[in-house]
Amino acid sequence: MEAMNGAVVVARDVTRRYGEGDTAVDALRGVSVDVQAGQLTAVMGPSGSGKSTLMHILAGLDTPTSGSVTIAGTEITTLGDTDLTKLRREHIGFVFQFFNLLPMLNAGENVTLPLSIAGEKPDPDWYDDLIASVGLGDRLSHRPSELSGGQQQRVAIARALVSRPTVVFADEPTGNLDSKTGGEILELLRHSVRDLGQTVVMVTHEARAAAIADRVLFLADGLIVRETHGATAHEIVEEMEAIGAE
């Protein structure tokens, strides 16, 4: 379900404070975001900017100190655990920096895991297409320990996409990969948005990764300071330097 303006994830005045009193740390100081459907939105910033915190809150992994977050029209900050779990099944997919595959399941089982948790089976055609597009056809019966980093991340992406969630959150997806493999992964993410109509929110500190995004949000000190659309890696680096200088 989309909001009137096509935003599937909406955050309003989100703040996140850790600790109390003098030692309190404000990781986010009032962030408002509309994530548009069918787009790849990147969140960038230097370390300590609050980008990971923002994504965790948008994804429902963390609760904001104040403010609201809506996914597919549902306010998630006040949801109970059961409803949040249901939401995750239908609307949220994850790609982690360290792949987070289950070591005792093979690639195919890892991919279908979200569906089997929900007690469902994937549509065979969709499944075959997905596997083909991530290029895992010959690796399905292998365990994660038998796969390279890049292959593992492909499995993770397929897993995130298999239930066709409303939004996929990717946390530094290339952080643990070499540049060539990283590039392949980024291409996959791009493909999912462009050809499969997936909405993706990606946190990254690499300009090259942010360059594949339709929209880049720049965070510094817990606030969104800039926004670009369709920028190249070079431009993004310049923006980062400019932010750093401020």
Binding site: L61, D81, T82, T85, K86, R88, R89, E90, I92, F94, F96, N100, L102, P103, L113, P114, I117, A118, R159
Partner: peptide, 16 residues
């Protein structure tokens, strides 16, 4: 811990 946390992010309920 990480395994169980991942399962939860994939939509596994506490009961599961």
């Amino acid at each position: 811990t990480r395994e169980f946390a991942t399962l939860r992010t994939l939509g596994a309920s506490r009961r599961q």
